[in-house]
Simulated assay, not measured.
Amino acid sequence: MFKIVQEEILTNKKSGVLTCFFMINYRCGRYLYLFRKKSKYSKWLLFIPYVLCLFLAKLMSSYIGGSLPFFASVGKNLRLPHGLSGVFISGLATIGNDCTILHQVTIGSNLGRNKKHMPALKLEIMFL
Rank of each mutant, 00 (worst) to 15 (best):
F71Y: 11
Q104R: 13
I24Y: 01
G75Q: 06
D98T: 05
M118Y: 13
A93V: 09
C99M: 08
M1T: 13
T11E: 08
S85T: 15
P119T: 06
S62C: 08
P81L: 02
R30S: 07
L80S: 00
E7F: 01
I48P: 07
H117I: 12
M118T: 08
I107R: 09
L102R: 07
I101H: 03
K40Q: 12
V74T: 04
K122G: 14
L59N: 03
Y31V: 11
F88V: 15
A120D: 10
Y33P: 04
A120E: 05
I101E: 07
P69H: 04
P49S: 08
A120F: 11
G83Y: 04
Q104W: 14
D98K: 12
F70G: 02
F2P: 09
T100S: 12
N110R: 13
M126G: 09
S109Y: 05
S15P: 00
P49Y: 06
V17D: 00
K38E: 15
K13D: 10
C53L: 00
I125V: 15
F47L: 10
I64W: 02
K40M: 09
I4C: 12
H82P: 07
S61E: 15
L18G: 03
L52R: 07
K116S: 13
I9V: 14
Y33F: 15
L78N: 00
F55S: 03
R79G: 07
I64Q: 11
S67H: 10
R79S: 08
A57F: 06
Y33G: 08
L111K: 14
C99Q: 03
I9E: 05
G96E: 10
S67Q: 04
T19M: 01
G83R: 05
L111T: 15
K122C: 07
T100M: 12
N77A: 08
I101L: 09
S73N: 14
E7L: 03
L68C: 05
V51C: 04
G112F: 10
F47H: 11
V74W: 03
L84C: 13
K37M: 11
L128C: 09
F55D: 00
T19Q: 10
Y26Q: 08
I48H: 09
G29N: 06
Y50I: 05
V74Y: 06
T100C: 06
S67D: 02
K76Q: 14
V74L: 01
G65D: 06
